[in-house]
């Protein structure tokens, strides 16, 4: 469950403005339960929307609302390459290929 494969990374490594799908949550028990209750569960799509001026914490969008998590905790939220989200690896402002 902890093995990392190519194309997988944590929420802390997600580029600003990009989305990823939660693959596993490996944080302390209390935070893990809270995250789950707040709707961050395996399979949920999260987007990194903002980083605080001092570099921490992060703001993510999940299920249509904004949630702030610390960078250290975000490292435990593993994301998977989302087959539907090609934009994940492509630059955001990439011009559409005609």
């Amino acid at each position: 469950m902890t093995a990392r494969h190519d194309g997988e990374y944590s929420l802390a490594e997600l580029p600003l403005g990009r989305e990823g799908r939660v693959r596993a949550i490996e944080v302390g028990a209390e935070l893990r339960r809270r995250l789950q209750e707040m709707g961050v569960i395996v399979g949920t799509i999260v987007r990194l929307t903002r980083i605080a001026p001092l570099g921490d914490p992060l703001e993510i969008e999940v299920r249509g609302y904004r949630l702030s998590v610390r960078r250290a905790d975000a490292r435990g939220i593993h994301l998977a390459h989302d087959p539907a989200g090609e934009a994940l690896t492509a630059p955001m402002a990439a011009p559409a290929v005609a």
Binding site: E30, L31, R34, M38, E59, R66, L67, D73
Partner: peptide, 11 residues
Amino acid sequence: GPRATFLLELP
């Protein structure tokens, strides 16, 4: 205790 959880909704 367990490290403080910081999980904050930004309404």
